[in-house]
Amino acid sequence: KRYRAVYDYSAADEDEVSFQDGDTIVNVQQIDDGWMYGTVERTGDTGMLPANYVEAI
């Protein structure tokens, strides 16, 4: 699945990823209600991200 960031996010922990509004997130997997795991296409960084900061595309 592919998602697009709708807000900027700065990683708060080493297992999270930072991204900017408009970034595409690929290979996304749902972890639980609030978190997903995926790769930021622009940077190649992979990690956890907050589900409410992205939307499906």
Rank of each mutant, 00 (worst) to 15 (best):
Q29E: 11
E14A: 13
G22R: 04
Y53W: 07
A11N: 04
Q30T: 11
I57P: 03
Y37C: 08
E16R: 06
V17Q: 00
I25M: 05
N52R: 14
D45F: 09
N52C: 14
V6Y: 07
S18R: 02
V26K: 08
Y37I: 11
A12L: 13
R42V: 04
A51I: 11
R4N: 07
A51T: 10
G34I: 15
Y53K: 08
P50E: 02
V17W: 00
Y7P: 00
E55M: 12
E16D: 05
R42I: 04
F19Q: 00
L49Q: 01
V6A: 06
D21C: 15
E55G: 05
I57S: 06
E55C: 09
D33N: 11
D23W: 07
G44H: 05
A5T: 04
E41G: 04
Q29D: 08
D23Q: 01
A56W: 10
N52E: 11
T39Y: 05
E16G: 09
G38C: 03
V17C: 06
V40Q: 03
I31R: 10
N27L: 12
N52A: 14
D21M: 15
T43W: 01
D32W: 11
K1V: 14
I57R: 04
Y37E: 05
Y7R: 15
A12P: 05
D32V: 12
V28N: 02
W35E: 02
G38F: 04
V17S: 01
A11I: 03
R2M: 11
R4E: 06
G34H: 15
Y3H: 03
S18L: 01
V17L: 06
T39W: 04
W35K: 06
R2N: 09
G38V: 03
Y7A: 15
A5W: 03
T24M: 13
Y7M: 15
G47Q: 03
Y3P: 03
D15T: 15
V17D: 00
V26L: 10
S18I: 01
Y7S: 14
R2W: 09
N27M: 12
T43D: 03
Q20Y: 12
V26R: 08
E41A: 08
D8A: 14
G34N: 15
G22N: 06
E55L: 11
L49C: 04
Q29V: 15
Q30C: 13
A11H: 04
I31T: 06
V40L: 03
V54S: 01
V54C: 05
